[in-house]
Design a protein around this nucleic acid. Structure first.
Lengths: 139, 139
DNA sequence: GTAACTGCAAAATATTTGCATCCTT
DNA sequence: AAGGATGCAAATATTTTGCAGTTAC
């Protein structure tokens, strides 16, 4: 299903190269978040570390992916949904990081409750990350 | 006001050394969170980089401070409130990252709403990070 | 053909570890 | 005095930069 990746790249004005296609494809198959090292390990081909950095950077700039703040401060990247645009994320669901298997998944069905901030604070983006034990590991 | 720092150190079974006192004092004076480099730059004295690492590590282990997950690479540390104990954080408040001034603050008065996860997921910790424009920058 | 992407080497940063010395209790 | 904390040196790990060769359009 690399066709989907190609289309996404084109739609975001990124030239379609093998590395970008394979890395984006990994995100598309994943339904979850990936760390830099996940990508190095799991991509269909071995890419230079630097290429991974630059690819992620390009995806971030175009708003194709976004970073997820996790309690252990390891940076994870996740695909943006369709309605994310450059610099404007509406990533309204909760992310879950499993402390056993290390996977990060998007809980699309759990939406982030809205909160009231003190006067003067303006909200651009809200991230909610739950850590614990995931469905597969809690059995 | 290093007396307060000394007391906090003692209460947490940490020996009172000059470095710990000065670094903890910085946290006490500070409204908001500090990164490693903030500490190196702003501490009353120059401490070895390694000492700062080890001091933060010790504070973390004793539950004196906690880390704040941020979407960018930078790990930030903030003082825990009184009711945080070793290994047991009641870190139930929202964190706010200002995109204008770059400061990170704890919104102690805004608590994280509880959410229901799908069957099989076990929650250990919940983090909620809001980014946007802070009170000082929105005027 | 041109501009952009890639990989390699290397530089710059960040973090961890070992050890001898100094400080706190 | 004893154990722990500190600073320095050095080992690792991570991220960035420069450049020449290659690829996309």
């Amino acid at each position: 299903m690399e066709a989907k990746a190609d289309e996404l790249l084109r739609r975001n004005q990124l030239s379609v190269t093998n590395g970008r296609r394979k890395i984006l494809d990994l995100f598309l198959r994943q339904e979850g978040a990936l760390s830099h090292s996940d990508i190095e390990k799991r991509a269909a081909e071995k890419f230079d570390r630097v290429t991974v950095y630059r690819t992620l950077q390009a995806f971030l700039e175009k708003g194709l992916i976004h970073t997820i703040p996790t309690a252990d401060n390891s940076i994870r990247y996740a695909l943006c949904r369709e309605h994310c645009a450059e610099g404007q994320h509406r990533d309204d669901h909760v992310h879950f990081v499993c402390r056993t298997c290390g996977n990060t998944v998007c809980l699309e069905e759990v939406s982030i409750p809205s909160i009231r901030l003190p006067r003067g604070f303006v909200t651009t983006q809200v991230e909610m990350v739950v850590s614990g034990t995931c469905k597969n590991c809690s059995e």
